[in-house]
Structures are given as structure tokens and as C-alpha cells.
């Protein structure tokens, strides 16, 4: 859609924050309570069930650490894309965004490989409380990675034509948030055994 079809409402900025970034912050705020509710439920159960430690000892720390590294690196790409967009270099921003999305893809591949190993060992969603939370938490996070990748590729397609560059920062903000969620999932699922 061309910029001229946007309503006047979209261009106004009563708060001093552009509407696109403002809505991103509100999305992040609502995501905090979604992940927060799930994480709080997990932590309560985990502390109440010391016997879950045995299940937790089977998770693959190397896979979690590798995925943390991948997401941190993709976050770096996302913020560099924001820098490029600020200097009005759309094609460079697009390239960096696609690199970020590639990071997401590698993340999901590692995740898929890790889950394959888990399932081969017989640990599935219904294998017990810990494994239920393990797959649900990582699965919900994985869905956010997937959604972020798709949006990022759409934003990159526009950015390559130097259009809608303000969106580069917004998708970056979302991506960093998804990164932060993983930063907490990593110790909760892989380290604290």
C-alpha cells in the first residue's frame, strides 16, 4: 500500500513517539504478560517439584547455548539494520534484516534437531510435568521466532526499495524482545538443573 493511502491519524504523534514504534511497545507489553504468565506457572511448579530435576538433567545444554549465541548474533544484525535504516540506506538494512531472519531459521533448525534427539530418547510432550513445560515454553517462543522471521522478510522487501524504513526499527524491537525471552528460557530450561 502506498504511503498516501494512510490516514492522517497514522501520521500524528501526540506522544512524541511515532505510531509504529508506539504500537510495537504495546505489543511487547502484552507479550510480557503472555510469557510472564507461562513462566510464572513453570517456576512455581518447578520449585514445588524437586523431582523434576531428574528430567531437566536430560536437556542438551550445548544446543541451548548454541541457540543463545545464534539469537544474540541475529539481534546484532537487527540493530545494525536499524542503524542502516537511520542513515537511509534501505538496501543495506534489507540485507541485514534477511541475515537476521536467516539467524531465526538456523535457530529453528537447531531446535528441530534438538527436539528430534529428545523425542528419540522418549521424551515427548506428555512424558511428565517438566517435559510438558519444556515443549510448551520453547514451542511458544519458537512460534514467535517464526512470526518474526515472516514479518522481517516482508519489511526487508519494502526496505530494499527504501520504503517504510521506520518499520526496520520496529521489527528489530520485537526481535530483541524475543531474544530477551530466550535469554531467560535458556537458564530456566538448560542451566538450572
Amino acid at each position: 500500500m502506498s504511503a498516501s493511502a494512510k490516514p492522517i491519524a497514522n501520521a500524528r504523534s501526540g506522544t512524541g513517539i511515532p505510531s509504529a514504534r508506539l504500537i510495537t511497545w504495546w505489543v511487547i507489553a502484552s507479550e510480557i504478560v503472555i510469557f510472564g504468565g507461562l513462566l510464572a506457572s513453570y517456576i512455581m511448579h518447578r520449585v514445588a517439584h524437586p523431582e523434576w530435576a531428574e528430567s531437566a538433567s536430560h536437556t542438551l545444554t550445548w544446543a541451548g547455548a548454541l541457540n543463545t549465541f545464534i539469537l544474540l548474533t541475529s539481534s546484532l544484525c537487527a540493530v545494525l539494520a536499524h542503524q542502516a535504516a537511520d542513515s537511509h540506506d534501505g538496501p543495506k538494512a534489507a540485507k541485514l534484516l534477511r541475515l537476521t531472519a536467516l539467524g531465526g531459521l538456523i535457530f529453528l533448525c537447531v531446535k528441530g534437531y534438538e527436539w528430534t534427539l529428545d523425542i528419540r530418547e522418549g521424551f515427548v510432550l506428555s512424558s511428565g510435568g517438566f517435559w510438558s513445560f519444556y515443549y510448551t515454553l520453547a514451542g511458544l517462543h519458537g512460534l514467535h521466532v517464526l512470526a518474526g522471521m515472516i514479518i522481517m522478510l516482508i519489511v526487508a522487501a519494502d526496505a530494499a526499495k527504501n520504503e517504510e524504513l521506520q518499520r526496520v526499527e520496529c521489527i528489530g524491537l520485537y526481535w530483541h524482545f524475543v531474544d530477551i525471552v530466550w535469554i531467560f528460557l535458556f537458564p530456566l530450561l538448560y542451566i538450572a538443573k
Partner: peptide, 25 residues
């Protein structure tokens, strides 16, 4: 609504798994 619905969305996913994938949340 935005600040209160999140935990129930998470809970809905958990209940859905309880119903369909025999988890025990």
C-alpha cells in the same frame, strides 16, 4: 484487558494440550 489476558492465553494453550495431547498441567 491487555495486561490481564496474557496469563489466560498461556493457560489456554496449556489446557488445550491437556485436552488433546494428554499433558497434565
Amino acid at each position: 484487558f491487555m495486561c490481564s489476558a496474557g496469563p489466560l492465553i498461556a493457560g489456554a494453550v496449556m489446557l488445550l494440550f491437556d485436552q488433546t495431547m494428554s499433558t497434565g498441567f
